[in-house]
Design a protein around this nucleic acid. Sequence first.
DNA 1: CGGTATCCTCGATGATACTG
DNA 2: CAGTATCATCGAGGATACCG
Lengths: 125, 125
Amino acid sequence: MPVSSDAESCQVQPALEIIVGKWKCKILLHLLFTGTNRFSELQHALPGITKKMLTTQLRELESQDIVQRVVYPIVPPKVEYSLTPYGRTLEPVLKMMHEWGSTHVEHMRIKQQEIETYALTASKG
Amino acid sequence: MPVSSDAESCQVQPALEIIVGKWKCKILLHLLFTGTNRFSELQHALPGITKKMLTTQLRELESQDIVQRVVYPIVPPKVEYSLTPYGRTLEPVLKMMHEWGSTHVEHMRIKQQEIETYALTASKG
DNA sequence: CGGTATCCTCGATGATACTG
DNA sequence: CAGTATCATCGAGGATACCG
């Protein structure tokens, strides 16, 4: 599968579209590591998210065949979410991004430290 | 480097922040494959981008140590952009996303086809 | 419990014109 | 050539209230 520089054939974008969204990669990681979750479990796992956002993001992932939604017709309602087998193919991608991201945070930390050290040296003469 | 499901330690996000932006992954891929580019060369390689957007996205990548900007003090101005060595460490990440993205586009195409076939069968009786 | 419905804010992006 | 300045738009995300 050749990677071309032709802007028209940039297939990074479709992959990006799955995981961009303020909560999506957190939802995906949580489902990857904890398996099936009820709606309320996801809500507690993602402090600050509203029901509306959680619903929106889950519905999008569902329409993309990444997340599976199972409704139990009982009272009170019970809805379970999990990754589809296809959704799990994202794991190596997420893992690689996580690793690069960790390195990057460290890289930026060191760079910032250098700037501060320089500023200190400069101010001291 | 353990990947935790704890939302606080989601390091996918910092990686995402580098490549989200309407033009960033295209800029990165283009620089990866063609090396050093002048501002105008990038502009032609990205049909539809405005100078303002190109400047904005390049400046962000520069501040993150991904892209290098070299200004030649001549008239008319000449400015060259290239990936930093650190920026090139994104290559395997982008490549993996590109490959998953290609598979995903195909996956969605097949899924769509199934839906259409079903609709046809259903309408025929 | 697991949602919808409404309304609102704000930042990413864009159009356009000007500049050293 | 490689920008900057200014203004406008639009949709992702959020606050809040209500619902089966």
